[in-house]
Design a protein around this nucleic acid. Structure first.
Length: 627
RNA sequence: GGGGGUGUAGCUCAAUUGGUUAGAGCGUUGCCCUGUCACGGCAAAGGUUACGGGUUCGAGCCCCGCCACUCCCGCCA
């Protein structure tokens, strides 16, 4: 490059970021680049706050020291225009420093201003954090590039990047290889609904986007990689939630020659590091390891929030011979009685109780028995059936006090637990809103849920299916029960849970082809030809020396969301989809032209006419009249 | 697939029981202003009340339909 061009190019560049200037820089000539955060035009003096990714700095345009042309240029600037300002750093006059920003002791007396790009009038404000945070999410997603300029969103992106780098470093330190696996994969209809991709070169055939790199990572173990990890993009064509997107990122890993404890230790080390990096919090390890049956008994959900009590208590023995037939009858039919004490919720209105009852019914409960403890009395339609001994047992085991609300579930064990588990969470929400339950913002209760049942029974189909996936290894001593008592077989599966959120799960896998074949054909009753078509390549691979192995996957988006303190993973994904799976910014999905379909040998047969993509009128403010 | 919530000016929100010309703050535009940082002052523009029907003398408000966003259930091996 010619020397003069090089000089121009260097003059283009900033000398500092907008968070850097301090009294130590006074007297220096500096250049800043960024966006017009705000402009305060006092007529004879203009202040412009310039903002970049790092922070904000005040610049001053003083007509006594400037060409009129430059001053007018500054006066014409609109919010969010892109500028480059050169000037001299000086101390702010006494009494005009701004303690709210780190550069608040100094300002730049502008000597040059270049407008790199004028911005149109904004569809929503990005400079006022309070207003911006309330803006309709639809609008934020449509103009995501403006939304991401907000410091809060930029902070989320930055933390996400920091965490990704920290975990890569952690895995490298622990001897892992990062391997990328294909996203054009094969349909495996056993799991979640998949996104299907037609193959042009193989008419009538389809790829599927992977729900996880599960099979590839196991084959990498057969390949002798020994320790693999990946920040893997995964796809599921299911309905969305605040914590679910159709494409999402998993921290995926697999190790050979290990057992469950090795996974626990590795992940505890990782999470310890990430919490330190993000929040400077030392989380205690090891995490409790609690069997599934105990978790269900105590919390009624497999991802319990243990930051508050209100645990479920069993009263099956106490009510076995009760004169209250609803309870004793349920027990006689093989069911259980569970209760929970919603501390301080006796104030619940009739309406709230009804809401809870309806809620319980929506999960299959027949009703929801309750006792309100008010003014020393037990107010309840059922308490008249209870004997003194039964009342005493309740008082003792539930530690009943004035102001409590006791709720009961009578059903088969798992149903009773699950119903009361949902009610427990509902009560916690009510107590939180009324200020009777407060949870410190930086409390993190981690735990491992272990010993899940390997198999679940599908009544409609009258067959067993894998609780997780068919490659999960049974607990070794339970293998003999596979064909005799499948219900009792525990899987070597584990979930890591924090504050009621399932952060991830994994398992030790089956590495013996014979056992895998038994599970597929005899336990799951998948016909051999189907097994062969779907998983033949895996069974084949496992014939040539598969090491014992296991792994886990963490939901990276959820992890980042928790560390950013946001309830929605959309806030930590740069370009998320809406609840209907569309992208408001790019207006996708969209129609394709007939020729593309013809190339793919696809013909559309739609019940309804394809909805013509309505070209939304851009929410642009009226164009101001020209001067 | 089912249930709940929301939709009024560019943005955030009001609008009493269905009743006059649908208001406010911010933003925008014009004028004034040399120490502001939520700058200030004066003035102005800006509305198919998401959309389509219906009831009514009269609908932002009631009814039916529909669309979008959102939360939850189902679903997510």
């Amino acid at each position: 490059m010619a020397p003069d061009l090089l000089k121009v190019a260097q003059a283009m560049k900033r000398t500092h970021h907008c968070n850097e200037l301090r009294p130590a820089h006074i007297g220096q000539t500096v250049t800043l680049c960024g966006w017009v955060h705000s402009r305060r035009d006092l007529g004879g003096l203009i202040f412009i706050d310039i903002r970049d990714r790092e922070g904000r700095t005040q610049t001053v345009f003083d007509p006594s020291a400037l060409a009129a042309e430059l001053f007018n240029k500054a006066a014409s600037l609109r919010s969010e225009s892109v500028i480059r300002v050169t000037g001299v750093v000086r101390q702010r006059p006494a009494g005009t420093t701004n303690s709210k920003i780190v550069t608040g002791e100094v300002e730049i007396v502008a000597t040059e201003l270049e407008i790199l790009n004028m911005a149109a009038v904004l569809p929503f404000p990005v400079d006022d954090p309070e207003v911006a945070a309330k803006v309709n999410e639809e609008l934020r997603l449509q103009y995501r590039y403006l939304d991401l300029r907000r410091p809060e969103m930029m902070r989320n992106l930055r933390l996400r990047s920091k965490l990704a780098i920290a975990l890569r470093q952690y895995f490298d330190d622990n001897g892992f290889l990062e391997v990328e696996t294909p996203t054009l994969f094969k349909s495996t209809p056993e799991g979640a609904r998949e996104f299907i991709v037609p193959s042009r070169t193989n008419p009538g055939q389809f790829f599927a986007l992977p729900q996880s790199p599960q099979q590839f990572k196991q084959i990498l173990m057969v390949a002798g990689v020994e320790r693999y990890f990946q920040l893997a993009r995964c796809y599921r064509d299911e309905d969305l939630r605040a914590d679910r997107q159709p494409e999402f990122t998993q921290v995926d890993l697999e190790m050979s020659f290990i057992d469950r404890e090795d996974i626990y230790n590795l992940m505890e080390g990782l999470l310890k590091k990430l919490w330190k990096v993000a929040l400077d919090i030392d989380i205690p390890t090891p995490f409790p390891r609690v069997p599934f049956a105990e978790i269900m008994n105590r919390y009624g959900i497999d991802k319990p929030d243990t930051r508050f009590g209100m645990e479920l208590v069993d009263f099956t023995e106490e009510f076995r011979a009760s004169t209250f037939k609803v309870f004793s009858g349920t027990i006689a039919a093989g069911g259980v009685i569970k209760a929970l004490n919603a501390k301080g919720l006796a104030c619940a209105t009739q309406g709230q109780i009804e809401t809870m009852t309806e809620y319980a019914k929506s999960f299959g409960a027949k009703g929801l028995a309750f006792i309100k403890v008010e003014k020393g009395e037990w107010k309840s339609p059922i308490v008249k059936f209870f004997s003194a001994a039964e009342k005493e047992a309740l008082t003792k085991k539930l530690a009943i006090e004035e102001g409590d609300l006791i709720l009961f579930a009578a059903d088969q064990w798992l149903n009773a637990c699950e119903i009361l588990g949902k009610i427990r969470l509902y009560c916690a929400e009510v107590l939180k809103t009324s200020g009777k339950l407060t949870i410190p913002p930086h409390q993190f209760n981690f735990l491992w849920v272990v010993d899940f049942p390997l198999l679940s029974f599908d009544k409609e189909m009258n067959r067993w299916y894998s609780s997780h996936h068919p490659f999960t290894s049974p607990v070794v001593e339970d293998i003999p029960l596979l064909l005799t008592d499948p219900k009792k077989v525990r899987g070597q599966h584990y979930d890591v849970v924090v504050n009621g959120v399932e952060l991830g799960g994994g398992s030790i896998r089956i590495h013996q082809p014979e056992l895998q074949k038994t599970i597929f054909e005899q336990v799951l009753q998948i016909p051999p030809d189907v097994t062969q078509a779907r998983f033949g390549y895996m069974l084949e691979a496992f014939k040539y020396g598969a090491p014992p192995h296991g792994g886990i996957a963490l939901g990276f988006d959820r992890l980042v969301a928790i560390l950013c303190g946001t309830p929605s993973i959309r806030d930590v994904i740069a370009f998320p989809k809406t609840a209907k799976g569309t992208c408001l910014m790019t207006q996708s999905p969209a129609n394709v032209d007939a020729r593309q379909l013809r190339d793919l040998h696809i013909e559309l047969k739609l019940a309804k006419k394809p909805v013509e993509v309505e070209v939304k009128p851009q929410a642009t403010p009226p164009v101001p009249p020209t001067k």
